[in-house]
Simulated assay, not measured.
Amino acid sequence: MGDAAPWAAPPVTLDPAAFRGEIDGQPVGLWTLTGEGGVTVSLCNYGARIVQILAPDRSGRLGDVVLGYDSLAAIQGGQPSMGAFIGRFANRIANGRFTLDGRTHTLPQNAGPHHLHGGVKGSRFRVFDTERLSASAVRMRLTYADDEEGYPGELRSSLLYRLDGDSLRLEYEATTDRPTVATFTGHAFFNLAGGGSILGHRVTANAHFFLPIGPGGIPTGEIRSVEGTPFDFTHPEAFGTRIDGDNHQLHLADGYDHTLVIAKEASAFGLVARVEDPGSGRVLEVMSTEPAAQLYSGNALTGITPRDLGKGGVAFMRRGGFCIEPQGFPDAPNQPHFPSTTRHPGVPYTGVIAYRFTTSA
């Protein structure tokens, strides 16, 4: 129990100079948060992305528990969602269009025929204005222009990254001057072992229903019980136990890439999922105010250079990271029975995502 996994090398020390630069006339840099809970977080304001999280294992050894890159150039050549804060609409919108108040809005089709993660100039590709508030907190701001990527309304957003004890909190707010649609999420790729496969990580999800998908990852509209399916994580189960089983939904996504419906009151802050790495003893609890969460098992991490070349020159392996992305329902603007993601002037869209790091015995 006291021996580190063979792949859990000491964390890479990030060089702030490697993240300095300018994109679209905006300065880019690295911000590191420290607090009292033994966790350290490094952030880049290009995409408001989490680059590194150092968390102790059961023996007190620090390990890097998120995948990421060690320079701005590597970020630009890498997986665009890696660690990013996603807006203005997380996940997919079918066929790149939706109708709001009788008007059809056309969006970029950047995932086959569909729209993904805000489009070709979503927040993943934008520089956030950043203000350090304290050693443990920074605030990042981004304004989405009216008709940008085809969305109606100017949407002004604010994101607070804050270390609170052993938790990293993402507190966000957005206001619009016209009716629009929006839902945000955090897209960190976690590996609680600090390397290797995540298939041995044990997952417990606060979800009794999930959204089946069709081709392209678009929800079919059905809200299906997890009972008797590989999506039943109501009791602890390893990612790898059923991931390669004979199941049509898993075949469509080459693993897990599905939305879980979180069992809590709408807008209430509550538990989304708990993940434990038995080897290191590290435990991640994800909490949120959002009604759903995308569960992703890193199926598209394939070691391709330079896209999948991470910190310290270590390639990302297939299923070497997992994502739990609290968010609104994907394709909600086209599926009226899903909880609404429509935002109105004078009514701020607010939310919280928290990642709590502890250890098991």
Rank of each mutant, 00 (worst) to 15 (best):
V51F: 00
V51A: 02
Q52V: 02
Q52E: 12
Q52S: 15
Q52A: 07
I53Y: 12
I53F: 14
I53C: 07
I53K: 10
I53P: 11
L54M: 14
A55C: 11
A55E: 13
A55V: 12
A55T: 12
P56D: 11
P56Q: 09
P56M: 07
P56H: 04
P56K: 09
R58P: 07
R58S: 13
S59F: 06
G60D: 13
G60W: 14
G60F: 13
R61G: 09
R61Y: 13
R61V: 08
L62Y: 11
L62D: 13
G63W: 04
D64W: 04
D64N: 15
D64Q: 11
V65N: 06
V65D: 09
L67G: 07
L67N: 11
L67V: 05
G68T: 03
G68E: 06
G68C: 10
G68P: 11
Y69K: 06
Y69N: 04
Y69P: 07
Y69C: 06
Y69R: 03
D70C: 12
S71F: 01
S71E: 02
S71W: 02
S71A: 12
L72H: 01
L72A: 03
A73G: 08
A73I: 00
A74Y: 00
A74H: 02
A74M: 04
I75T: 05
I75W: 05
I75G: 03
Q76A: 06
Q76P: 01
Q76H: 02
Q76T: 08
G77D: 05
G77H: 03
G77C: 03
G78V: 07
Q79G: 13
Q79I: 11
P80F: 05
P80G: 04
